[in-house]
Design a protein around this nucleic acid. Structure first.
Lengths: 227, 227
DNA sequence: TAGATTGTTAATCGATTAACAATC
DNA sequence: TAGATTGTTAATCGATTAACAATC
C-alpha cells in the first residue's frame, strides 16, 4: 500500500517534469523527426501498428533507444501490437512543430535555396516555407516552386506581417551576418544557417548551422581510417 | 631524475597512441574542419599566429576545447604567440583529407547537386569532386561548374578508373539504395547521403547522412521552447 | 617578476546501453 | 503458461569543462 502510493508520487512528479520544463535532449528531437519521416513514408496503409525494433531497424538504432525517446514524450504502446502509427505521427508533429505549425522564410534563391524550398514544402509537415527573398531582379516577384520570391528589402515587413518564426539563410557567405540581423529584428525565433559564416547571435534565438564541407571532410577522415 | 624519466615515458606512450590507432573523436574531426575553414578565411595575410581564444570566439567554442583538439592532433603552439596559422592549416589538411587528397563523385545533378559541386570545389581543400553523374540526357556529357557530367551507367567504370574514394548521393530518394550499392561495388570508402532514405551498408564503408528536414524541425522545436 | 598563455588531467555532464520488472 | 514486447532504472561510455601546472 505504502509502496503503491510511492510509485504514484514518482509517476506524477516525472510527468510534471515532462510538462513543465520540457526541453527534450537534442538527439531525441532529431530522432523524433526521423521517426515521423519513416512512419509517414515506409508504412503501408493497412499497417496500423509498429514495434520499437521495426523503427530501430529502419533507422539503424537500437530498440531501447526508440522506446526511451517515446517514453520521454510520454507516448505508450501496447505490448501486443507495439505503437499506433497514426497517433505517434500526430503526437510528434505537435511536439516538434507545435500544433498550429510555424511559418518559415528562406533568404537566397540560388541552387541550394531552390532545392530546400522544393524539398521542405513537399513533405506534409506543420512547417511551411511561405516566402522566399532575393535581391536579384530576375528572381524577384516570380514564383519558385509555388511560393513567391520577394525583394530582400521587404523581409522585415513581410516576416512581421506573416508572423514568420523561422528563417533559413542560404545567401553567399558575405551577406550572412546582415541577413541574420534583419531576421532577428523581424522577430524570428530560430535560424537555420547554411553559409559558412559563424554567426554571433543572442541567446533568445535558436541557431542551427550546417556546413557541407564539414560533413564531407568527416567522411574523408573516417573512410580513410576505416580500413 | 626518476621523475623526468617518467614524464618521458608517458609522453612517448601517448604519442604512440596518436600515431597508431588514431581515430580522433567525431566531434574533434568536425571542429578541425571548422578551424581550418576560419583560419583560411578570417585571417588577414599579415597575421601569422592565432591564440586559442581567438579561434574559440570565431566559432562559439571555449578556448580549452580548441587547445584540447589541437593537443589530440599533436600540434603545439607557443605561449607567447599562440599557434602558427599556416602550419596548422596544413596539418589539419593532412590529417583530415590525407596528404594526397581524395577524389569525390557526385550522383544526381539537381539543384542540390549543383549547389554542392560549386560550393565544394571552390574551397581550397584536398578534396575534389572530379565527376558528376545523372541519367537525364539534357545533363549528360555537359559541364557543371567545371566538371563533366557522365551518364549514371558509367559510374562504376569511372569510379574505378579515377580511384574515387568518396561518393555524394543527391538523387531522388527512391534511387538512393541502388546508387549506394553501385558506389560500394565501385570501391568507394565513404558516402555522404543527402536523401531521406536510410541506407543499410557494410561496416567497411563510412556513412554520413544529412537531412534538412531534421535540421529544420530541430530549429522549430528549440525556438519554440526558447521563449 | 606578474600576466598571459599553452597543455593536460580529473571531474562533470549528457547520451547510450545493459539489465530487468511489468504486461499482454 | 511461455514468449515477446514495453517501460524504466542504473551502469557505461564519450564529450565537455574545470582546475591547475608549466612556460614564455
Amino acid at each position: 500500500m505504502l509502496c503503491n502510493l510511492n510509485i504514484l508520487v514518482i509517476f506524477a512528479s516525472s510527468l510534471q517534469i515532462l510538462n513543465n520544463m520540457s526541453q527534450l535532449p537534442e538527439k531525441t528531437v532529431e530522432r523524433l523527426s526521423q521517426y515521423r519521416r519513416i512512419l509517414l513514408k515506409a508504412c503501408p496503409k493497412e499497417k496500423q501498428h509498429i514495434y520499437s525494433h521495426e523503427i530501430a531497424q529502419l533507422l539503424h538504432l537500437t530498440p531501447v533507444q526508440v522506446r526511451r525517446d517515446l517514453m520521454l514524450i510520454g507516448y505508450s504502446g501496447s505490448q501486443r501490437k507495439g505503437y499506433e502509427i497514426n497517433k505517434l505521427i500526430h503526437l510528434i508533429g505537435e511536439i516538434i512543430d507545435s500544433k498550429e505549425g510555424q511559418k518559415v522564410a528562406l533568404i537566397g534563391v540560388g541552387n541550394l535555396g531552390r532545392a530546400i524550398i522544393r524539398y521542405v514544402n513537399k513533405k506534409n509537415s506543420n512547417l511551411k516555407i511561405v516566402a522566399a527573398f532575393d535581391t536579384n531582379p530576375d528572381k524577384v516577384n516570380k514564383e519558385v516552386s509555388g511560393i513567391n520570391c520577394y525583394h530582400y528589402d521587404q523581409l522585415a515587413k513581410i516576416a512581421k506581417k506573416e508572423k514568420i518564426t523561422i528563417g533559413i539563410i542560404c545567401v553567399p557567405t558575405e551577406y550572412c551576418v546582415s541577413v541574420a540581423d534583419c531576421l532577428i529584428k523581424s522577430g524570428v525565433k530560430g535560424i537555420l544557417n547554411f553559409t559558412a559564416a559563424p554567426l554571433n547571435i543572442s541567446d533568445q534565438v535558436f541557431l542551427e548551422e550546417y556546413d557541407m564541407i564539414t560533413s564531407l571532410e568527416k567522411v574523408a577522415y573516417f573512410s580513410k581510417e576505416n580500413k
